[in-house]
Design a protein around this nucleic acid. Structure first.
Length: 429
RNA sequence: UCCGCGAUAGCUCAAUGGUAGAGCAACCGGCUGUUAACCGGUAGGUUGCAGGUUCGAGUCCUGCUCGCGGAGCCA
């Protein structure tokens, strides 16, 4: 259909255009009214003066909130208008008159809005978040493409657990037990041995009964894996990717960040290289801040927040005790008590957004680890093959998309970082 | 699974154990540049469910249901 996007109105001043959109709100008096119109790219207003077009004025006055309409008018610049431009309306075609809309523009609670998520996403803040999410996804693809990574997606339905420890969603696979993927990493290691540098991007499922602002049952993860990448290569890749994402969002989605009221200076403060803290140094930092923490414990959310407070950029915590990390993590040759793994902690208390590290490339050690973790060796035979046939040093990581979106947008809960969040006991809509 | 908090009009919230109320939304009317517009009026209730205490319970007690926040686990 013919039409101009609201975001492009600035180039149409003086000409008559049609906007295909929805009626977001209406303001005005008995003699003049302002139709607030949204189209997914932005918000503008149509102006109607009763004296000039009495019939159209009365018709417009009766159009209910969220009706779909095509508004034709002449574009004018006006600093009072949302977005700086407005339409002197000449015609309105109501595409579909809406029933009484359940979401008013006033204050609502989260429960109420979450139950109507399919409508909530029409509001300026929610749609701004989803536009930023899309920008982040584009930035990721662009970054990997520029760095010679091939997208090779991992399966969603898997025969066994990758790490074996977390709870999985079980499904009936034609009479056989199967599970929804909780990580594509093991498959990434296989594709990396085929393609060199790979990444996968898709939904991931965790059935843990987690009930916090950082957890979803279904979330999207970007996982990269590269052959002949050592631990340091991997950290460098991660920080450059995050930096690239931030720069692209700052460049292309500044207006959306402003809609969200995000403190943009916090994002501009992110600088390369990111600080690196060994686990042991992080423990000392926590102890110096007066927190009770013993070497060998894993960090809780409040610990991560306490560490991130010390830095403007995301901070790497590396070389964790072997006992608290996954079976495939490569031990540090300098100190066998720790592994070459690192978490990236986002600033402002947003917690871990990346987990990654160098993988064990030695067959015997990997077999020993599977035994120690009491994992069924048969299920991992194909994975062990990767060490039998041309094993190489390799490293990778996984980035949680929703946590990244929440951090960049300054959200207080990851549920707003995805169009339709799947949370504990929350499966609708 | 554990700890804490909550459930009153469509929504957001009030109401010492003593007649359930306001703002917004809806509906009617007014207003010539609005910015979650504003002003006047109308209508709107099995106070989450089931028991109990009391002359009297939205309010106190017990159980249940649902929701929220946090912990653990993790991205």
């Amino acid at each position: 259909m013919d039409g101009v996007l609201i975001k492009n109105l600035s180039s149409q001043v003086g000409s008559e255009v049609t906007i295909n959109g929805w009626l977001y709100n209406r303001r005005g008096s008995g003699k003049i009214q302002f139709l607030i119109i949204r189209d997914g790219t932005g918000i503008t207003q149509g102006v109607l003066v009763k004296q000039e077009k009495p019939d159209l004025f009365d018709t417009a006055k009766k159009i209910p909130q969220e009706s779909s309409l095509r508004v034709t008018g002449v574009v004018e610049e006006n600093p009072k208008a949302p977005g700086g431009y407005e339409l002197q309306v000449n015609n309105i075609e109501v595409v579909s008159e809406a029933e009484h809309y359940p979401i008013s523009l006033k204050k609502h609670g989260v429960d109420f809005l979450a139950d109507r998520r399919h409508l909530w996403i029409r509001t300026p803040k929610q749609s701004a978040i989803l536009r930023i999410r899309s920008e982040i996804e584009l930035a990721v693809h662009e970054f990997f493409n520029q760095n010679d990574f091939i997208q090779a997606d991992a399966p969603i339905i898997t025969p066994n657990a990758c790490e074996g420890t977390t709870t999985l969603f079980e499904i009936d696979y034609h009479g056989e037990s199967a599970y929804l993927s909780q990580s594509g990493q093991l498959y990434n290691e296989a594709t990396a041995m085929a393609l060199g540098r790979v990444y996968c991007f898709g939904p991931t499922f965790r059935a843990e009964k987690s009930k916090t602002r950082r957890h979803l049952m279904e979330f999207w993860m970007i996982e990269a894996e590269a052959a002949y990448f050592d631990f340091e290569d991997n950290l460098k890749l991660q920080e450059e990717m995050i930096y690239h994402i931030i720069q692209r969002v700052l460049k292309n989605r500044r207006a959306e960040l402003e809609v969200l009221g995000r403190d943009i200076s916090k994002l501009e403060a992110v600088k390369l290289p990111f600080p690196r803290l060994s686990y042991t140094e992080a423990v000392e930092l926590l102890q110096n801040k007066g927190r009770e923490f013993n070497w060998g414990d894993d960090f809780g959310a409040p610990d991560e927040t306490a560490i991130s407070e010390e830095f403007d950029s995301p901070v790497f915590i590396h070389r964790f005790p072997t006992a608290i990390k996954a079976f495939y993590m490569k031990p540090d040759p300098q100190d066998e008590k720790v592994v070459l793994g690192a978490d990236l902690i986002a600033p402002e208390g947003y917690g871990e957004i990346i987990g990654g590290g160098q993988r064990i490339d030695d067959l015997a050690l990997l077999e020993q680890r599977l035994e120690e973790h009491k994992l069924p060796k048969e299920a991992f035979e194909w994975y062990l093959d990767l060490r039998r046939y041309g094993s190489v040093p390799h490293s990778g990581f996984g980035l949680g998309l929703e946590r990244t979106v929440a951090w960049i947008c300054g959200l207080d809960h990851v549920r707003e970082a995805i169009p339709f969040p799947r949370m504990l006991y929350c499966l609708y809509p």
